[in-house]
């Protein structure tokens, strides 16, 4: 099966004005199904309901949610990927000093056998992955532009854009390990280090290694590159539907209303 390499937008990642953000959000809303829970704000697939307030939301102090775009991102090229998962080994090996694919911030393991589509009895021989056509898709964090789904969903304001490259990063001191961000990321790029709400459980996501990604250096096939940020959130299909139970907190909703 011949497929083109993934198209990657080369747009420079300049900061967006609030008008552009509103446009962006509306574009998202028009593009994707998302969930509007009656009487509450809720997260869509990659978008947020910005209309209407609720008594729960009213009166809460707004939380600063707007973040500048990331400056870089890690992008995978499936054509070059050999499925070795050295990137995953580097990601946890050179940070936590352990090998633990389940919390790697670059995710290949889940696609390596049956592709992003996942396992199914019929068609595995023609799908992606080692049981199919050998195409291995590396999932990397999109470093989403505002509105950043994981950041907005966090009820504890634990995800922030961190200098020098504005990666969206979990502040482990604030993180309570509730796992809401795991569900809120449309691409399933966040992992918990333990059970949800478990003692010591923390969320973990790609930090871009402060602009010097270990995974990129470790890849023996040049299948990962670190490049200037561009918005891939519109071109890469989401991996999961964000459940209706994931809602914006009142503080976030108040903040949204300031601009929209």
């Amino acid at each position: 099966m011949k497929e083109p390499r993934d198209a990657v937008s080369e747009d420079p990642g300049k900061e967006a004005s609030s008008g552009e953000i509103a446009d962006l959000i509306h574009k998202y809303i028009s593009r994707r199904d998302f969930l509007i829970a009656t009487g509450a704000f809720s997260l869509g697939v990659t978008a947020f309901c910005i209309m209407g307030g609720t008594s729960a939301a009213a009166g809460a102090a707004p939380r600063k949610i707007y973040v500048a775009n990331a400056l870089g991102m890690v992008v995978g090229d499936p054509t070059l990927c050999t499925g070795c998962r050295r990137c995953e080994a580097a990601c946890t090996g050179y940070h936590e000093g352990i090998a633990r694919p389940s919390i790697s911030r670059v995710k290949v393991a889940r696609n390596v056998q049956f592709g992003v589509e996942g396992v199914r009895m019929n068609g595995y021989q023609t799908g992606n992955g080692d049981f199919g056509n050998f195409r291995t898709i590396q999932d990397t964090c999109r470093q989403c532009p505002h509105p950043v789904p994981c950041q907005l969903a966090c009820p504890h304001d634990a995800i922030e854009a961190l200098a020098p490259v504005n990666a969206r990063v979990v502040d482990v001191k604030k993180c309570e390990g509730c796992g809401i961000c795991v569900q809120a990321c449309p691409w399933g790029m966040i992992s918990l280090t333990g059970p949800a709400n478990g003692k010591g459980s923390k969320a973990t996501k790609c930090t871009l290694c402060n602009g010097n990604p270990e995974c990129v250096q470790a890849c023996p096939s040049g299948a990962l590159t670190y490049r200037k940020w561009s918005d891939l959130t519109k071109t890469i299909p989401p991996r999961q539907t964000v459940p209706a139970s994931v809602r914006l907190t009142a503080a976030v909703a108040e903040s949204c209303k300031e601009c929209h």
Binding site: T82, C84, R85, R86, A89, Q125, F134, P220
Partner: peptide, 28 residues
Amino acid sequence: VKMNGCLHCPVRCHIATDVPQLEQYGVS
């Protein structure tokens, strides 16, 4: 199609092939 192999190995000694002719025999 590419070279494949075992977990965490950078060497990749397994040959992943695409041989369309096999489809006429009903195998992948």
